[in-house]
Nucleic acid binder design. Structure first.
Lengths: 221, 221
DNA sequence: AAGTTATTTTGAACAACGTTCACAACATAA
DNA sequence: TTATGTTGTGAACGTTGTTCAAAATAACTT
């Protein structure tokens, strides 16, 4: 009984060290010998609590996703409270969609996207590790991981249903994923210096522009 | 004079081999000893014609970008020809923007994006290598590389000017980059199996939906 | 053509990596 | 204490990218 506890502690220590190293150097900062030294154990000990270094990276990534989820939830809820008393607007008779509801849905999408952008900007390396990490040919992500990703899309689906009320759930899910991907693309290439850096303020503005236009275009049809 | 020619040949052979290996295994397929064997030279010989393996990857990526540029150019030109005789539509008096011109600009954006998607789908590994490859801390991309990227954005800027005639060149450039990033995000996450695969047909439809909505939203304001 | 010098290519050697495994250290039970 | 099973260790293995003394080749001189 003692050993499992000790191993749990070691695993925790390793995850913390791995997180620190990713923050400092990105995925390249994950090295067995370094982690062992930082955790105060032998190199071989790592493989007592973890199958791979990949598993360690996945553990870090899972926590990063949880952090992100929490922040998105906070951003979404902060809004929900602020809107109490806004009142049920007058339904537009032709489209069946309330104008102010549409505006609010777009605003919600923008809030979520800006939150995502800020998270990515604040925890760049840890966040990029999620997308840079590739499992060795053949192995696939654990279920929990995919589950967490669906959670993220759920945030988007809610306001999306206001814009496109008639959409089948399947299509709605796909569109949510697409919107996420678009914002993700803007974020990841924006924070990258490969194409020449863009300021955070500019990125915010671009995201607002794109999502607002998208909201207008999507709610019109 | 003979040696420089020989080296040029070796470099070419290595680039070809590197391209083949990236197609087969992604960036992980780039290994000094394998490349040397395939090119029929000693491992050390590689470093006579190239500073790094990174330089080799960059050479492959540059060619990939050229391929992409050619295909985009073909897609853009095919359209220009098809539109001859379409006629100058009636200018909308209020916005100063011709309705059919707007439609055509959106159609052009869609064509470019679909072309990008197809290129990415057809040459997935080679295309992903462009974005997966990271230079070692500090070194930056050669000028030619950044130049090629600006070329890509130029394709987008042209139809974009129809949608937003009043936009300052600086802002237009930024928006073009943003649109590219959005389409890129949809493409790269769509082709990735990490979030569960999406069919190419679905991806096409999503890109059409998003760009059409974006075009509508952008031209309205 | 032969000898001398400079250049170019070579592959063994090096450092650093993830991972493994025979063994030392330890705990537990008899 | 002794015997037995379990756990942790770090040297060792197989692969990386890269280097460098030496061998091979080219270039030049007489």
């Amino acid at each position: 009984m003692k050993t499992s506890e000790r191993r749990q502690n070691l695993k925790e220590t390793l995850i913390v060290a791995a997180t620190r190293n990713i923050d400092a150097l990105g995925l390249a900062g994950i090295k067995a010998r370094d982690l062992a030294a930082e955790a105060g154990c032998a190199v071989g000990a790592i493989y007592n609590v973890v199958a791979d270094l990949d598993e360690l990276v996945l553990a870090v990534n899972a926590r990063t996703l949880t952090m992100l989820e929490d922040e998105l939830k906070a951003a979404a809820d902060a809004n929900a409270n602020a809107d109490v008393g806004e009142g049920a607007g007058i339904a537009s008779s032709q489209t069946g969609v309330d104008k102010s509801q549409v505006d609010e849905a777009v605003a919600q999408l923008v809030r979520l996207a800006i939150c995502y952008l800020h998270f990515a900007a604040k925890h760049t390396r840890r966040w990029r590790a999620i997308f840079e990490h590739n499992l060795p040919e053949g192995r696939q992500l654990p279920d929990q991981y995919q589950e967490q990703q669906r959670h993220l899309f759920a945030f988007i689906e809610e306001p999306l249903r206001v814009l496109q009320p008639g959409l089948a759930p399947e299509q709605s899910e796909l569109l949510a994923r697409t919107l996420f991907s678009a914002v993700h693309g803007i974020t990841i290439l924006g924070l990258e210096e490969k194409l020449g850096a863009v300021s955070l303020a500019d990125l915010e503005q671009q995201i607002i522009t794109v999502l607002t236009a998208l909201g207008a275009g999507l709610s019109v049809r």
